[in-house]
Structures are given as structure tokens and as C-alpha cells.
Simulated scan of single mutants.
Amino acid sequence: MNFNFLSPVSDLVLAHNELLSQQTLGKKIKIHSKQHGIPELDQVHLAIVGVLENRNDVNYIGEEFSLDEIRKSLYSLFPGNWHKTIADLGDINKGETVEDTYFALKTTINILVQKNIIPIVIGGSQDLTYANYRAYDALAPMVNIVNVDSKFDLGDSAKPIKNDSFVGKIILDKPYNLFNYATIGYQTYFNSQEEIDLMDKLYFESYRLGQVSKDITLVEPVLRDANIVSIDLNSVKASEVSDRQKTSPNGLDGKEICAISRYAGISNKVSSIGIYEYKPSRDDTVTSMLVAQMIWYFIEGVNFRVKDDDFLNDESYQKFITLVEDQELVFYKSIKTQRWWIEIPFLSEINNKLKRHTLLPCMHQDYLDACNNKLPERWYKAFQKNCI
């Protein structure tokens, strides 16, 4: 396998790992080291990849950074009752140009996803999500992205890509593979009214911080439908992170960001995740431990994945039909997990028994709303997107 882009985990981290208890995660994972090289990837289910690229950060002033503290924190945690094998493949260093780094990340993710290995990218600036997205060009015809962020990051796509404008590039650059884009935890005052209107016009989904904090379960169906999850650490409130990481007094708290990570892990569809905008500082232990715990919860979620969306077997689900404004809505509920889906009608005319239903993950509440003659918003947006 061509992983020439990857440099090994630092000796400092490996020395720290030697001192840990035999039961810790650091002793259970396969690590890319100078001494032993890149580990064998047979039987590996998840792979950690660091990316030391931050030159497209709008505030970039030439600083370097390292992910050593995150690794030390992660390695020191104890795994749950897990059966998935994890590898730490080390870091992708800055390329000659940012495009070189994008190419290295795109290639690495593409290889891993093809091998059914989920990449967990720990990065510098969030524009790396663009490279993650491009890795799917040859993998999937349509891609759903969820961005956990206080901003939409649409930006001006006519200008060069930056960490606050990469979504504009994803939407407008060919090939057009983006089906749905959802932002979790956005804060209105950080986004222009034009961007908020554009999100609506494109029938993309956005969940305000207040909505998410009030009921975190709202975001589970959104993450269940995502292929790529991108988390901006600036979505976390200042009191939860180290000095250089502080951006806003409001934001998601530690429990909420870990719950979101776990939902992403449980999703059968999520095949890559990235945690971005990490800025180490001298009092770094809080942020590095938070990122380590987010990764821990994601891995925990992956270990608890349940194949519950195979609706070919009548005994595995219950079907509910309700009428809203002359529109017949068909809901499915998994008997195994109690999770809900709603059918998108645009494919219902295709009489192909072998074709999997085009189903949109939803909540029990959506069914209750439909029974009260209220159209679920997620269904409406997906329906509209397919009428365009």
C-alpha cells in the first residue's frame, strides 16, 4: 500500500506510551513507528491519521503545531468492551503546497475507505474537509456531509479556498457529488443573513446551537444519514477548552460534542470523520483530552453499530402509513433498535423489488407530528431537493 505520505508517531509519544498500563488504548492499537514502520492493515477497522496542515487558516501566521498531546491523552484512556481493531498511521506533513497536502489526504482516505477502514482525521484547518470530500469522487455518486460548527463556512467560492469558505468550493466545484450538507450547532450571529438564506434556498439543513442543546437527540438522524462528518473545535464553548482554543463564550459543551461523536460512530453510513482547528497551547491538557474523548466516543459508537436498515425482511421492521396534506407518508421502525425512517416518494414509482428503499432517517417525533398533520422538515427538504 502506498502510504509514503505518512510520517511515524513521534518517539516522545511512544516513550510516554511505554509507561502506561497494559490495559490502556495505547497498548491495544497498532502504531506506525520509526522502528516497525506502517502496521499491517488486514483486520483493521479504524485508522487515526494526523494532518499537520494549517496554511489555509484565515489567521495563519506561519506557526507549526503537533498532535503529540492528543495522542498522549488518547493512548492513556481505557477502551470499552470493543471488538474493532484500531491503527494509528501517524501524520501527513505539510506538502510543498497546500494542494500537495490535499492530494496526500485524499489518496490516504480513498485507500482506507476502499479497504472498509474508517479514517479518523485529526487536523489543522477545517478546509481539509474539502480533500476528505474529494476522496469520495471515485467511491460514491452522492455524498452527505455533516459539519459540527458555529458557522456554515460557505464563504465566497470565487476566492481561494480557506477554512471559512471550503463549503462553497464543495458545492460549486466539479464533479458535483454533494447531496446534502447539514450544520449542527450554528450560532446565528456568526453567519450573515445571506448565508442563512442560501442554506434555506439549497434545502440544506441547519440546527441552531439552542435547538441542539435543548435536545441532543435531534441530531442523531442527521448523523445516521452522513457519509462524512467534520467537526470544528471552535464549535465548543470557551470554558471547555485551553487558552488558544477559546473562540466564543457560547457553544457546545464537552458532553454534547462527545454525544455527537458517538452518534456519528453508531451511524452505519459514516465512513470518515475529521476533527479540525486544533491549536495547541502551553496549558493544552484540556483540549487534547477533549479531542481524545471525542475520538473514544466515536470508536465506542462504531463498536455498537447495528445493521438495522435492511428492510427486505418483513420481520425486522414495522411499517406505518399516515396522510398529511394529501401526501401519503410511509414510516419504518426497526424492531431491533427502535430507530425510525421515512420513505422519500420520488423513487416510489420505480417498481424494483431488489432496490433498497430510499429512506431518510428520522425520529419518532416526526411520525407523531405527521399523525397531527404536520410535514416533517427533513422529509420536506429532501423531497424539494429531488424536485430541483
Rank of each mutant, 00 (worst) to 15 (best):
D314A: 13
Y332W: 02
N227C: 12
I273Q: 05
S239A: 14
D310A: 04
G265I: 06
L223N: 06
N313W: 04
G251Q: 02
D314L: 13
T287A: 09
F311N: 04
S242G: 08
I335D: 01
S272K: 03
V241N: 02
V212Q: 02
I299K: 01
R244Y: 14
E300T: 15
F331R: 00
L209G: 09
G254M: 08
R262G: 14
S230D: 06
V222F: 09
V306M: 00
S272H: 05
D215S: 13
S272R: 03
I216R: 04
K279R: 12
P221E: 10
G254A: 15
G274Q: 02
Q293T: 14
T287I: 05
T287S: 12
Q211Y: 13
S271W: 03
D314F: 15
A264H: 05
I295H: 01
E328K: 15
K336G: 04
P249S: 14
F320R: 00
V306C: 00
K279S: 12
F298W: 01
K333P: 06
W296C: 02
S267L: 01
T285A: 15
S288C: 08
I295K: 03
T217P: 01
V306I: 07
T217K: 11
Q293L: 12
D314M: 10
F311M: 06
V324N: 02
Q327I: 09
P221G: 10
D310I: 08
E300I: 09
K237A: 13
K237E: 12
V222Q: 00
L233C: 12
D225Q: 11
K333L: 08
G301S: 06
V270Q: 01
Y317L: 00
S248W: 09
I335C: 05
R339E: 11
R262C: 08
A226M: 06
N313Q: 05
G301C: 10
V222Y: 09
M294V: 13
T337Q: 03
S239Y: 11
F311T: 04
I231P: 01
P280M: 04
V306G: 05
T322G: 03
M294P: 09
V241R: 01
